[in-house]
Structure formats: structure tokens, C-alpha cells
Design a binder for these strands. Structure first.
Lengths: 260, 260
DNA sequence: GAGGTTACTTTATGGTGTAAGGAGATAGCA
DNA sequence: TGCTATCTCCTTACACCATAAAGTAACCTC
């Protein structure tokens, strides 16, 4: 399921995200044994290791030697914790790209993002609707837009380009990371799985080649194309789709530039 | 969370998907009051109305006047039910496009898929890794590849194109549908939400314009661009990204055709 | 009618997020 | 010094979730 972040009290969330909390004056009560920072870090480690499905308030609490409920004194809810995790992990991405030209820089930006999503697959499960509006989200965006502005295109076009660029990284990255996760979760490699399934397929639909001739033609040299042994078939295909989409999109930008 | 379909016994699942179950001879025991077909239809209706989050075995059972456990005599698990739902709902998509040329046909194919995802947002939450391999999946794919084959491009290129085309529909469709779902779930429109949040943003980061000058420039005429009142800002942006990506990808195909 | 098979139910297990209320620690103030 | 407000953190509880196990009742074949 998709996880909707950003549902709680906006004021509190924003204060947490932008670290505008009041400086801790001398307050009554026991000293806090944890901190928002620590909780977010722990949650991040769990999400990276076990995926979104393995991230529960209990799991985070257990790792910190507390109960799940203890976390609620620091963080209003799991939704807010996800917001904070998201913003924190975004800090990994490079802040600026001042290279040899916009085309190379956009390519580098996309490659960084691709690698980022594969490192932190759970990020792709955080809904893009109602974005979190944390500082690092803006830092990453600012970096991309700064590159794109060098193309001389107008703001309306740039906004569309930004979305399109995100799309062409995110969707194939999702496929690739899901392929890896499925491998880890089932203990069966993509290729083993594909092999087993296609055997069943022949069994259940012996007339496959007649029913789907064009597909059969296209998938023809399926087996002969494994160039990179470190990637499963599915992951390799996703990677190629990413590269194609990106290249075509960049070509499209060049065409727009000349047209203006 | 992402839902991994296709996890159960492959043989059983495939038999259910391709309807190669043995014809029901006279068997002992009480007459079945339900059927796989009925269960799948009910589950589909629930998923369409309430989203993936509202789809539980209890919910399906309740709607049919049974307990959740009753479903397990028909369907091995929820995962398999999702497979069946997925394949069934795909039957909505058109089987062939024999129009005025490949470009118009691909565009129609993409538009149909876009509308389909917005009608059934839960479909986007079914993992693409380990695809279901039901008959309708292949029907839809065959339709697309048949159009693309008319470009004269080779199978390797076509495979990449298929993935790229799916990407450029799926990711923005996901954003658009999440925007709608968020609206329904929170009772707050995208635009209201955006307005409230940006107020908080100004409060929490008064120096926003200095920290993110390029972003501020790009978002400048934000409010003046609402062309279509039936769509929220986010949905409109997603729609535009989709149209841009598609157009650029189609242009890219034409370039490849000339190059060959 | 007996026996086996099937549809469906009840009950139970271990998981989730989180509301409610309570225990104990610590500060400021009397 | 003690009172009290406030804090951290715990236990308990609730409403969900998928599904395993076992029981009941209907139905067919022999």
C-alpha cells in the first residue's frame, strides 16, 4: 500500500522538519533518553534494511530499547516519522552540479537519483501527492532547476520538464528495486522465477505463439541478451528503459531550445 | 506499502488465471454458494470504491454475506485474489488499435491507459516485478507491440520502448490518482492544502526566496496558470508531464526510424 | 444408511497503529 | 522541605489485518 505522509498537524510537522523547535529550556520531568534525531536515524536504518514493510513503531522502539509508545512523546505519529525520514535521507543527494553543461549535469542528477532510489527503495513508497515540504526536498529541486535554467527555457516548460524527469527515473527505478526486493523476499532469483513461470505458461496456454504472435516475435531472442550478469533480466530491462527515456527527453529539450 | 502479487503456488494461480480448472463434475458436499468469479468481482468493486487500503478479506466476505475465511475455499490467499483482480480489470482495455498510423494509435493506447489508471488507482499499487502472467496482461501488451511493430524498429528497441511508454504513463498517473485519493481521504482539496502549507512555509522559513531563488523564480506565476478548473493543481501538472513525456518519446521514435 | 468430501464457521495467533491511563522522575515555587 | 506541575516511559486495551486449525453441517456416492 501507498503510505501517505503529511497527515498530522501541519504546524508541528513543519516545525520538526525545519528544526524551529524552541531551544530546550530547563524543564521539569525526567531527562529525555531519546531524541527525534535518534529515532529518525533508527527508523531509516530499519527501512533500508527491511523495507517499508519491516518498519513498525514496535521495531523502532525495540531497537532503541523502548516500547513503541515511547516514541509518541517525540513524534506525533508514524506519518510524521516518515516525513522526517524522507527529508533526512534526501540530504544524501548532491546539492549542486556545476559541470560541463546542462546535458551532462542533468544526466548526472538522474544517475544520482537512480542510485539513490535503489539504495532506499522505501522512498518510492512515500506518496508524491501532498509532498512533505521539508528543506531537503527543496534543496534537491533547486539543484535540478538551476541546471535546467541554463537551457533558457521558460518556467512553465521547466515545471513540466521537472515532472517528466522525475517520472523517467522513478518508474523504472521502482521496477528495478521491486525486482531486487522480490528476490530477497522469495529467495528465488528473477531468472529462476521467469523460467519456472514460463514453463507453467506453456502448460496452461499451449497456443501462446498463435494467440500472441507479435509478442512472441519480440521476446524471441530473450535468452541471448543477458549482457550484464550482475543484474537480473527485469532489472536490466528497467535500466535500459531509464536510459532510453532520459536520452530521448534530453534530445527533446534540445529541440525545444532551438525552437524558441 | 507495495503489494506483491504472484507469491502463492504458481500452478494453482496460473490455472485460475487461464481458467483451465477442471469442469465441475458432480461432487459431494454442499453446493458452493460463491464462485471465484463472484469473489473477484466483489473485490474489484471494493478496491475501486475504497482503494487498496479498504480491500480486506473481511470486507469482501462481509459484502458477500460470508466470513473472511469462507473465501479461502475459493482463493488460496489474498495475493492470488489480487492477481485475479488485476487480470480481470485489464480486460477493460481495448484489444486493438487500427487507426490512421502508429503515432495516433500509440497516443490512443496511452490515453486509454491513463484513464484506466485513474479509474482503478489500486492497480498502480500492484508490483510490476514478477508480473502476473494472466491472459489479459498479454492481450494488452500484444496490442501495444502490434502498433509499435509498424515503425519497423527491431525487437530490442521495441522492448525498451514498451517499458519507457509504460513509465511515462504510470508515474504521472500515480501522482494524479494519489492527489485525488488524498483529497477524498482528507476532505481537503489540493489547492486548500497547498495554500495552508505555503503559509506555514513562510512562517517557518522566512528567507525561502533567498535560499531557493531558482525555485522561487520558477514557481512565480503559480496561481495564474489554473486553466482547467476540474483538476487540482497537482493533477494538472501530472497530466502535463504525461503529455510532454509521451510527445517527446514519440518524436524520439521518429528520429530512430529515420536513423535506421 | 455409512463414509468421505466439501462449504462455511468459530476460534486463535501474531502482526499493525495508537488511545488512555498510570508510574516515577524532575523542575520551580511555597 | 514539600507540593505540584510536567515530563518520559510503561502497561493495557482496542480495532484492525491475514490466515492457521479445527469443528459443524450439508451433500454425493456406494
Amino acid at each position: 500500500m501507498v503510505v501517505y505522509a503529511a497527515q498530522g498537524d501541519p504546524r508541528r510537522t513543519m516545525a520538526l522538519l525545519w528544526r524551529t523547535e524552541s531551544p530546550d529550556a530547563e524543564r521539569p520531568g525526567p531527562k529525555p533518553g531519546l531524541s527525534v534525531e535518534l529515532i529518525v536515524e533508527t527508523a531509516l536504518a530499519i527501512a533500508d534494511a527491511e523495507g517499508m514493510a519491516g518498519l513498525s513503531m514496535r521495531a523502532v522502539g525495540d531497537t532503541l530499547g523502548r516500547t513503541a509508545m515511547a516514541l509518541y512523546t517525540y513524534v506525533p505519529s508514524k506519518s510524521e516519522l516518515l516525513d522526517l525520514m524522507y527529508d533526512k535521507v534526501l540530504a544524501e543527494l548532491p546539492v549542486s552540479h556545476d559541470g560541463d553543461g546542462w546535458r551532462a549535469d542533468v544526466t548526472r542528477w538522474a544517475e544520482e537519483l537512480w542510485a539513490f532510489y535503489l539504495r532506499h527503495p522505501w522512498v518510492l513508497q512515500i506518496s508524491q501527492a501532498r509532498p512533505v515540504l521539508g528543506p531537503n526536498e527543496y534543496v534537491v529541486l533547486e539543484a535540478l532547476v538551476k541546471i535546467l535554467r541554463r537551457t533558457g527555457l521558460g518556467p512553465v516548460m521547466l515545471r513540466r520538464l521537472v515532472s517528466a524527469l522525475y517520472s523517467c527515473v522513478r518508474e523504472p527505478a521502482r521496477t528495478a528495486s521491486e525486482a531486487r526486493q522480490a528476490e530477497k523476499a522469495t529467495g528465488q532469483s528473477d531468472d529462476e522465477w521467469w523460467y519456472a513461470r514460463s514453463a507453467h505458461l506453456r502448460e496452461v496456454s499451449p497456443d501462446f505463439a498463435e494467440r500472441f504472435p507479435t509478442l512472441t516475435w519480440m521476446e524471441g531472442e530473450h535468452a541471448f541478451r543477458m549482457e550484464d550478469e550482475t543484474m537480473s533480466y527485469l532489472e536490466q530491462e528497467a535500466r535500459e528503459a531509464f536510459e532510453l527515456s532520459l536520452a530521448v527527453l534530453l534530445d527533446g529539450i534540445e529541440v525545444s531550445m532551438k525552437a524558441e
